[in-house]
């Protein structure tokens, strides 16, 4: 079950990557990042079966960080939306040259 779980975690991570590359909606990009975080969490939990309780403790920390990140990130998205009336990342190309 351990190896299977690790493979599953890699697959979910890959899905998150695909989402980040393919989607342009800022909120969905964000959700893809959450998916990647969760894939990592799964790997941690699975590995905790091999290496001990520390894996689960790290998941705990990852979740805390994810919560903080979601709060700040969504606040940023809201202020972006207020400014531009959209969250489609194709309209935010100020980083160009």
């Amino acid at each position: 079950m351990l190896t299977r779980s690790l493979v599953l975690s890699a697959i979910l991570f890959g899905l998150g990557v695909a989402g980040v590359v393919v989607r342009r909606n800022a909120i969905i990009l964000f959700m893809c990042i959450e998916l990647m975080l969760n894939a990592v969490n799964l790997a941690f939990v699975a590995l905790s079966r091999a290496a001990g309780i520390e894996g689960q403790i790290f998941v705990f920390f990852v979740m805390t960080v994810a919560a903080a990140e979601a709060a700040v990130g969504l606040a940023i998205i809201i202020s972006i939306f207020r400014h531009a009336e959209t969250v489609d990342m194709k309209n935010f190309n100020l980083l160009r040259w």
Binding site: T3, A10, I11, A18, A43, R49, A50, G55
Partner: peptide, 26 residues
């Protein structure tokens, strides 16, 4: 999706070849 597949494959290799065999009995 190609990237996703590649990522998944590489991560699988990393995790299964390195991670799982390091420790046991957790």
């Amino acid at each position: 999706f190609a990237t996703a597949g590649l990522t998944g494959w590489l991560l699988t290799r990393v995790l299964t070849t390195e991670g799982a065999v390091v420790a046991q009995g957790g």
